[in-house]
């Protein structure tokens, strides 16, 4: 394996910035800070939950759920402050995210509650040390970077989990989507609608080629009227799909190529040369009919022409 992989696998994924504790942090100060937050957990947690309710966050959860989850968040938060490690926190944040994403909790709510906790605790420390500005400064110096790091960790964990869920959903949708329609025996139409990315393009290719085989198709019409835009990677996939279809004995016609997409492809240098393209689906179907009735070995065929 090359270096990239080793780094990606041994390093902390999602790690952002320096460690929680700068070397100058007073260990005794930190311990005292943590002890204070633990000792006053009941009232600080209550203040926090009040702020959460005021801000109308986590409304999809019942008050018992909020109480129970927020207690866990509080404890994990303070633990992270104490140990300087975000590992446990990240693991907890992931499992929390897994639970609440399906309930419909949004990103801004998760960031919101963490920031509110940061604020509630900061304010408590402020009030506790307000008689001693110099000590207060040192306490906040210790607290602030750690608290910010925690907020980022929880936020990123939530977003990561959310992205994972979305990807899983997209995969499921891809599985169900885009049937290859059979029309009149030897002609297939593949209408592509929506966003076309590499993974979907690969899936469509597999579906199409299987359908060619199953239906003994001679002509396929790939219609991209419903596709808003494609990039060069996907365009190349389409070209490859057409070529692979040919290897299986089917001619392919690409229809619905908007002038916008056509221009993009020209600009990107994608060679559509050998592909038959027709402006709209109807025209494509007519062309297909012609091809169906008329597939012969062309004169001037490379096989018949002198070999170089």
């Amino acid at each position: 394996m090359n270096d990239h992989e080793e780094d990606a696998m041994s390093g902390e994924d999602g790690s952002v910035g320096p460690a929680l504790h700068a070397p100058e942090i007073d260990a005794a100060l930190l311990a005292e800070l943590v002890a204070y937050l633990r000792e006053h957990r009941p009232e600080l947690r209550e203040a926090w939950v009040e702020r959460i309710t005021e801000a109308q966050l986590l409304r999809v959860m019942s008050s018992e759920e909020v109480f129970s989850e927020m207690t866990a968040v509080y404890d994990n938060y303070v633990d992270a402050l104490e140990t300087g490690s975000v590992e446990t926190l990240r693991a907890y944040a992931r499992s929390l995210s897994e639970r609440i994403i399906h309930r419909g909790v949004e990103t801004h709510e998760v960031l919101g509650i963490v920031l509110l906790l940061r604020d509630v605790l900061a304010r408590a420390l402020f009030i506790h040390h307000q008689g001693d500005p110099e000590l207060l400064n040192r306490v906040l110096d210790a607290y602030e970077p750690a608290a910010n790091r925690i907020a980022v960790t929880v936020g990123v964990s939530f977003v990561d989990e959310r992205e994972r869920v979305i990807r899983d959903q997209q995969a499921a949708i891809r599985e169900l989507s885009t049937p290859v329609l059979q029309v009149r025996g030897r002609l297939l139409i593949l209408p592509i609608i929506g966003v076309l990315d590499s993974q979907r393009a690969r899936q469509l290719t597999e579906q199409l080629l299987s359908a060619i085989q199953a239906n003994r198709a001679k002509v396929v019409v790939i219609d991209i009227t419903g596709v808003a835009s494609i990039d060069v990677t996907v365009a190349n996939h389409l070209v490859q799909t057409v070529e692979a279809s040919r290897l299986m004995g089917a001619s392919a016609i690409l229809t619905g190529l908007s002038s916008g997409i056509a221009q993009t492809l020209v600009d990107l240098g994608v060679d559509l040369g050998s592909m038959r393209t027709v402006g709209d689906l109807q025209g494509g179907l007519e062309e297909a009919e012609r091809l169906l009735g008329y597939r012969v070995i062309q004169e001037g065929d490379p096989v018949l022409a002198p070999q170089t």
């Binding site: 290719t205 597999e206 080629l209 299987s210 060619i212 085989q213 490859q240 692979a244 290897l247 299986m248």
Partner: peptide, 14 residues
Amino acid sequence: IVGIQPDVAVAMVQ
């Protein structure tokens, strides 16, 4: 040539 399998066709083209 006949009978090129779908996944083989993809490989040949890629």
